[in-house]
Design a protein around this nucleic acid. Structure first.
Lengths: 255, 255
DNA sequence: TACCAAATATTGGTCTTACCAATTTACCGT
DNA sequence: ACGGTAAATTGGTAAGACCAATATTTGGTA
């Protein structure tokens, strides 16, 4: 009696299409979807069908709609990684080393894969973000530098064409931004740090553009190593003070 | 600030109403919902609004619609916790490939670091979890195997002494196990898969215990490669079985 | 009478159009 | 330059129509 010959529903196909765009990074968290009328026309379906698809995504928490405001992509995918880490950072503050070590692996792999797989569109985006990075380091705006840095590394992560790596990279960058961006500003205390950082990014970009995976990985690892070393150097005195303070608070923490 | 005053949407209210009726028992599993036109009139809403609500329930797996046939209540309890990644894994096959490629890097790095850094306590725990793994594969209890597998990889992740990596490794493995047990039965298509899996885990364990980082990485990567190949094979066989069944949509359909 | 096949009715799937309500944007006057 | 109101934008809801797959009825034949 149950001959479940599946008739594909349009709303399901549309929902999958939108999901894929979110997974692949065409739609990032925080982005606003095109208006329903436009999107329906672009996808060649009616507005009710598109709405059914959007409702599905909304019920999964992937998007959120506000009447009159638009429909926005949530950070549900990144939160899977980000939230537990953020939690750990709260309970165990000296994870900077773990974070940078972990990031060394991620960035290295991302650069390697990006060098193997980047499309022309990826390279165009890399070129654009790298240009913005260069420009930001010409000024002295710390926030702008941080944003440009994140944008560049995210572009690398997306060019690696592995959706897990892409979203993990986003979560990791956000984690770093939220936790040590203040300290990142002190990198400029090292003479010529800005110039070195730009040249390191250039090395990554060039290796990816020239499709040299091993060189790209090396460049990325060198970059993270420099950041790690410079951070450790400039924060040494601060770290000593923090450690001393921490000793006062964490004695009974074997919960 | 953002005034996130939620404007109640009719489709949400209707979905809640229907969900309540199902949970209260007014609509039992297998029951057919009234026709959309009737139900919409009864609830005093338009048919599109009712349809959006039904789509939400369908995306949760609580109801199932067949064109021309009606909409039926399924027996899916709201057990499936809402991990967006879990959902994505089910609907996007290429995500599984990305997942395995990514895990190859993660597990390889975890094994390498574990071989470099494992303490005696780590090794003791590894020995214990590996013993449990061997024992679980002697039996035929899928859940027990899953738990033992997760415990072993968790031990590796912890022995790597990087909390980010440890957490990620465990989370990804859990995701894979859930996905496999949800969408396939088990990796039974390959004969002697169990024995091979045990020997692969043994190789990882031995390399870590003997403090051979490169060997540990290789062993872990070999393990993931095997899982990837086996999974692909299983998927092909499942696909074959489904096409065969589809060809058989004549009468005796109580498969 | 029994049974099978075609005709009919039912029902979910999709589209079009229209209007409402909340938000955002633009513009204008002070 | 600022603030507030009007207009445009955008999601939310409704109504009606038609299509496609399924279920039911009907009619004819063995």
């Amino acid at each position: 009696m149950l001959n479940k010959l599946q008739v594909p529903r349009i709303s399901d196909a549309i929902a999958s299409t939108l999901e894929r765009r979110i997974l692949e990074g065409s739609l990032k968290s925080g982005d606003r979807l095109p208006p329903e009328r436009e999107l329906a026309a672009e996808l060649g379906v009616s507005r009710p069908s598109l709405r059914e698809a959007i409702q599905k995504l909304a019920s999964k928490g992937m998007v959120q709609s506000r009447q009159g405001g638009g429909t926005y992509v949530t950070d549900a995918l990144e939160s899977t990684f980000f939230d537990p880490w953020q939690d750990m950072m709260g309970n165990h503050p000296n994870l900077r080393e773990d974070m940078l070590e972990f990031r060394r692996m991620i960035e290295g792999q991302a650069a390697e894969w990006a060098a193997e797989r980047a499309t022309d569109a990826d390279l165009a985006r890399l070129d654009q973000t790298f240009g913005a990075l260069e420009a930001s380091f010409a000024e002295d705006d710390t926030d702008k530098r941080s944003d440009a840095d994140i944008a560049f590394h995210q572009a690398i992560g997306d060019a690696a064409h592995n959706v897990l790596l892409g979203h993990l990279s986003a979560a990791l960058l956000r984690l770093m931004h939220d936790n040590i961006s203040l300290n990142l500003g002190e990198l400029k205390s090292v003479p010529a740090a800005g110039r070195l950082l730009v040249s390191q990014h250039a090395a990554i970009y060039n290796a990816v553009r020239d499709k040299k995976p091993q060189a790209a990985r090396s460049a990325a690892e060198t970059h993270i190593d420099f950041v790690r070393e410079t951070l450790a150097q400039t924060l040494r005195s601060v770290a000593r003070r923090e450690t001393a303070e921490r000793r006062l608070h964490t004695d009974f923490s074997t919960s």
